[in-house]
Computed example of a mutant assay.
Amino acid sequence: MQAVLDGTVLADASDTEVLTIEGNWYFPPDAVTAQALSRSETPYTCPWKGVAQYYTVQTAEGSYPDAAWAYPDPPASAVGRVGRDFSGYVAFDRKVTVG
């Protein structure tokens, strides 16, 4: 499964490695093209997943603020709810094609 924007592969992982949470695909940290992401200062805390880290996605075509996010340290209750540890897994905005 890949996450692609403007022809740039942002993440690439097998279907078994990717998680779906609330309709979003989450890629394991080691499957993400790190140089395509830069940390954003946008604050957000999900009531059940905890504090999010947003990222600006950079492609050759442009910069997309807050088009990716992760939960670096989700609470144990969130991990239990998902059924797997998703610490640091990265999800992408709807403008990113995942498939």
Rank of each mutant, 00 (worst) to 15 (best):
Q2K: 15
D6I: 08
D6T: 11
T8N: 11
T8G: 00
V9W: 08
A11M: 03
D12Y: 10
A13E: 12
S14F: 03
T16R: 14
T20P: 02
I21T: 07
I21E: 07
I21D: 01
I21N: 05
E22T: 10
G23W: 11
N24E: 07
N24Q: 10
W25F: 12
Y26K: 01
F27H: 10
F27W: 03
P28R: 00
D30N: 15
D30H: 13
A31K: 02
A31I: 05
V32P: 00
T33R: 15
T33L: 08
A34F: 00
Q35C: 04
Q35L: 04
Q35E: 14
Q35G: 07
L37W: 04
S38Q: 14
S38I: 12
R39K: 14
R39G: 08
S40T: 05
S40H: 04
E41L: 10
E41W: 02
T42D: 00
P43E: 14
Y44G: 02
T45Q: 11
T45E: 15
T45F: 01
C46Y: 05
P47C: 02
P47M: 06
G50C: 09
Y54M: 07
Y55W: 14
T56F: 06
V57S: 09
V57D: 02
T59Y: 10
T59Q: 09
E61L: 09
G62Q: 04
S63Q: 14
S63D: 08
P65Y: 07
P65C: 02
A67Y: 14
A67M: 08
A67P: 07
A67R: 08
A68V: 04
P72R: 03
P74E: 13
A76Y: 06
A76E: 15
A76V: 13
S77W: 11
S77G: 02
A78N: 12
A78F: 04
V79A: 04
G80K: 10
G80I: 01
R81V: 02
R81D: 11
R81H: 14
G83D: 01
R84W: 01
R84E: 09
R84D: 07
F86Q: 02
F86E: 02
G88W: 02
G88Q: 07
Y89I: 05
Y89N: 12
V90H: 01
V90F: 00
A91N: 04
A91E: 05
F92C: 05
D93C: 10
K95W: 00
T97R: 15
V98M: 11
G99E: 14
G99I: 08
